[in-house]
Amino acid sequence: MSRLIITFVTCFVLDNLLVIFLPIQPIVGHYMIIPNVFLICLALFTFYDKGIRPIIFACIFGLLYDICYTDLIGLYTCLFPIITFILLRFISQTMPVNLLSMMALVMGVVVFEEWFVYFIVNTMKTTNMSVMIFIKFILIPTAIFNTLITIPLYPILKSQFRKYQRQFLNEF
């Protein structure tokens, strides 16, 4: 279990480190790329644990995400468990676990998450960004970047979650 917590904390911190250390913004001009490494980790975890643990991790790290990275307390605390529930209930039961399906899943989850955040921020009138600007300069680059980040992350996370799954099954 400690290995699992370390994996989630590492992915959580990596979200911020990618923003700080990758020179994404100056290279691509006005485009804004938002790394979602933790969300990739959480989405993949739902395929290896079908119990309540993914939702618990989503709640805890959603609250931490709100405290550390956003101004709206409660946004990610609600959003991450909703995404996790949808993945657990509908998608992880039927979808195969391989690199291409995970890349497609990550693209879908990131698009859902970014649309939800944009909708909430736009509803609260804290942004004046139009939908077309949001799609062109934030949504598409973010979805592509996170899908590409899945390629090196997938084997690492898969091996960690398989070890956890084997350990968890041996306990019972």
Rank of each mutant, 00 (worst) to 15 (best):
M1I: 14
L4W: 02
I5Y: 13
T7L: 11
V9R: 03
C11N: 00
N16R: 15
N16Y: 15
L17C: 09
L18N: 12
I20V: 14
I20N: 10
I24C: 01
I24V: 10
Q25F: 13
Q25T: 11
Q25C: 05
V28L: 12
V28P: 00
G29L: 01
H30L: 11
Y31V: 10
M32N: 09
I33M: 08
N36Y: 08
V37F: 02
V37P: 01
F38Q: 00
F38V: 02
L39M: 06
I40E: 00
I40N: 03
L44C: 06
F45C: 02
T46N: 10
F47E: 02
Y48R: 00
K50F: 12
I52V: 13
P54W: 07
F57G: 08
A58R: 10
A58Q: 07
A58C: 07
I60A: 14
G62V: 01
L64F: 15
Y65I: 08
I67A: 14
C68P: 00
T70N: 13
D71L: 15
G74E: 02
L75A: 03
T77L: 14
L79G: 01
P81F: 06
P81C: 05
P81D: 02
I82V: 15
I82H: 07
I82C: 13
I82R: 10
I83S: 04
T84N: 03
T84W: 07
T84P: 07
I86L: 15
L87Q: 00
F90M: 13
I91V: 13
S92K: 03
T94V: 14
M95V: 11
N98M: 08
L99D: 00
S101I: 10
S101P: 04
V110D: 03
V111L: 13
E113Y: 06
E114G: 03
W115G: 04
V117T: 12
V117S: 09
Y118S: 03
I120F: 09
I120L: 08
V121P: 00
N122K: 15
M124W: 08
K125Q: 12
T126W: 14
T126R: 13
T127S: 13
N128S: 11
N128H: 12
S130C: 07
V131G: 05
M132Q: 11
F134H: 09
F137I: 08
I138L: 14
I140T: 04
I140E: 04
T142Y: 05
A143W: 03
N146T: 01
L148G: 06
I149E: 05
I151G: 06
I151E: 02
L157E: 02
K158M: 09
S159A: 15
R162W: 12
Q165Y: 10
F168H: 13
F168Q: 13
L169R: 14
E171L: 15
F172P: 02
